[in-house]
């Protein structure tokens, strides 16, 4: 499902970033989002970062999701 879990950017190499979500890491392309920096929280879809979330908002979202679902590892999903 499109849960929109924010991941934290831990590495940037050219147009690719490594983000950390619930302990797992993922490679995400940055072609669709300008100004992504180390430590930013981003939402990704189909392998591309699409939205930057401010840290407060991101931590709040992660907390809500942790409380409510088991899906943090599932992260990506539907095509919509």
């Amino acid at each position: 499902m499109c849960v929109g879990i924010p991941g934290k950017v831990v590495l940037i190499e050219g147009r690719m970033a490594t983000v950390e979500v619930g302990g797992a890491t993922r490679r995400i392309a940055l072609d669709l989002l300008d100004g992504v920096a180390l430590g930013d929280y981003i939402i990704a879809h189909a392998g591309f970062a699409i939205h930057k979330v401010d840290e407060d908002e991101a931590l709040k979202t992660l907390e809500i999701i942790r409380e409510l679902t088991d899906s943090i590892g599932e992260y990506e999903g539907g095509v919509c």
Partner: peptide, 17 residues
């Protein structure tokens, strides 16, 4: 490629590459 506006930009960027 099927998808709404969440997915189509990712496909466009892929085509760009």
């Amino acid at each position: 490629a099927a998808g709404f506006e969440t997915t189509s930009p990712a496909v466009a960027a892929t085509l760009g590459r």
